[in-house]
Design a protein around this nucleic acid. Structure first.
Lengths: 339, 339
DNA sequence: CTGAAAGCGCTAACAG
DNA sequence: CTGTTAGCGCTTTCAG
């Protein structure tokens, strides 16, 4: 049990067959007669044999695993997506490993793991790549095994799974309009981010459809982080007049903004209503519970896994953009405007 | 660039040297003359060569990576620990991969990755293993490359890095005592967890030192989750009398408890004071900002990485338990008891 | 259905 | 300092 690791030779000897048969019994059972299969399995058990993945990879030129690239592991938003990915891929016999794309990771982060034989495919949750650099990636022979989820890169030829951001924003805005809000502020994501673009654009469109102007002094540039949410609170509070509602492009920013406002005695939703985006777990538990747009994170993950699997197995090609529905979760941070 | 992957042979040919020299130039530059090294590097560049990790692993019997086992990826508490691990190990040329120990993962999760050649070592942030099963793990030839961090398993022969939990609880309690609290409740972690044991014991000791009894009806069994924090709020509210302060074994539980209480019109800290444990990022941003015990997460991670590295390189042995200092962060959830 | 044998790409002795 | 050579453990033709 604690001796040298058994190798396929040892199993073959113990089972009285050749190494080739052991190999087949293990990875293509249907090619082996039932009795030999049993014998091999028994021998595997007896010797405590485990296949050496390095040797197998070298021979088959497959890694047996998929890499998930996350922009920021500390954002609880991502864990459920990973869970969705995992459930789909582990069923297909693939391991899932997760890595944080450090700040300023180059586009090579998308191909290197495959070139180096670490992964058979990549699911990237980070859209923060230089489009030009991505063109080069697209030329690589590994390009077909890259899938984006949540975020994506405009104009890039990779399949992606995304929440229906525009629809989410529209629901949020309709909810605010229905409550009677017309003076609505926006906390955006970081410049150059596709989610920022999609959500900001949808915000502007919704305002325009109501004949409302988007005011510059009610528009704050954040970066999805807690800190920028706090900054947003200060920004709005310093203005001549508070909007009656603010739409935040992420829950995290919304929570920090609300927290800072409370410290300043600005009450949500009595003084200002707030809507978030993401529906992270904590949003349900804090007070006041956050009205927000829920992303179907598990679905996002499993669809991305599906897309990648299709490509790894050569079952499908092309670069579809799959949109996953979102939903409005009305909780306690929204109410009619202050009079 | 997008052709077949270059192999070491191609580089050797291009540089006019043998494959062995290429190999040396890449992984032991000091064993090669400067001119040849340059020639090899140029050839690598020209061919776009990347070493095949599977082949290298097969030959060297090393994976070149370390696995971090996390109980729950969705807890933001872990990400900074991982960052600490990463900064130390990447400097040593090791990749870091992260996996979620699914619920009910067996002890084989600790050895399998090494047996299978996926990892050279394991840093485990999850203490939830059957001690009996761990005895078997301890016999394995991979036992020497397992390090625990944050959590650990009592009586197991593995090195570990831990926060000084007892000291943290003592500081929290002293803070409450100094404010005048004597009626103090406790929200524990899950049964069988070492952190629960350490923190609950320290709580009881602190109370005893003040001549105070630990009341059963002010003691709630949680599991570190948001949901159990909400349950704790209900539990205390249903009692005949609220304690004047509650110590929560995790920030997440504290936040959910406070949130639920606010919904019930129980105010923190006016009606009850609350102290948490962890100091997750959000604790600083919510209202009221949480008084809590800060764990030096980055340090926890880097020390664990150091410990593991020593063992991988054969520089050190044994199973030390390294204690990392914690600190009390006083914010706004604690005040003098209601009168 | 099974066995023999040839490597996958790399590194580590061992000579020179 | 450099080249030759022998595998690491596995899968996969190719025969039988």
């Amino acid at each position: 049990m604690s001796d040298k690791a058994a190798k396929i030779q040892d199993v073959a000897k113990a089972a009285g067959v050749s190494t080739a048969t052991v190999s087949r019994a293990l990875s293509a059972p249907e090619k082996v007669s039932e009795p030999t299969r049993q014998a091999v399995l028994a021998a595997v058990e007896a010797t405590g044999y485990r296949v050496n993945q390095a040797a197998r990879s070298l021979r088959t030129r497959r890694a047996g695993s998929v890499l998930v690239l996350v922009p920021n592991l500390s954002n609880p938003f991502f864990s459920q997506i990973i869970a969705g990915i995992e459930s789909r891929l582990s069923a297909a016999g693939l391991k899932v490993v997760v890595t944080d794309t450090g700040p300023g990771a180059g586009a090579q982060a998308l191909t290197e793991p495959m070139r180096d034989g670490h992964a058979d495919g990549i699911i990237c949750l980070d859209g923060n790549f230089d489009p030009a650099a991505l063109d080069e990636v697209a030329q690589s022979r590994h390009a077909a095994r890259i899938v984006f989820a949540c975020e994506w890169v405009d104009g890039s030829p990779f399949p992606s799974v995304r929440s229906d951001n525009a629809h989410g924003v529209r629901m949020a805005m309709d909810h605010l309009f229905a409550l009677g809000h017309r003076d609505i502020g926006l906390v955006q994501g970081p410049r150059g981010n596709v989610l920022t673009a999609a959500r900001t654009e949808a915000f502007a469109a919704a305002m325009a459809a109501q004949g409302l102007a988007v005011q510059d002094n009610w528009m704050f540039r954040g970066d999805f982080s807690l800190e920028s949410g706090r900054d947003a609170a200060l920004f709005f509070a310093q203005g001549a007049r508070l909007p009656t509602a603010v739409f935040c492009a992420s829950d995290l920013m919304a929570h920090a903004m609300i927290g800072q406002w409370r410290a300043m005695n600005i009450r949500v939703p009595q003084d200002v209503s707030v809507v978030g985006f993401d529906d992270i777990e904590v949003s349900e538990y804090l007070w006041p519970p956050l009205t927000t747009i829920r992303q179907a994170r598990e679905t996002l993950g499993s669809k991305a896994a599906e897309l990648l699997l299709d490509r790894i197995l050569g079952r499908a090609h092309g670069a579809p953009a799959i949109h996953v529905p979102v939903s409005l979760v009305v909780r306690a941070t929204t109410a009619a405007p202050r009079s």
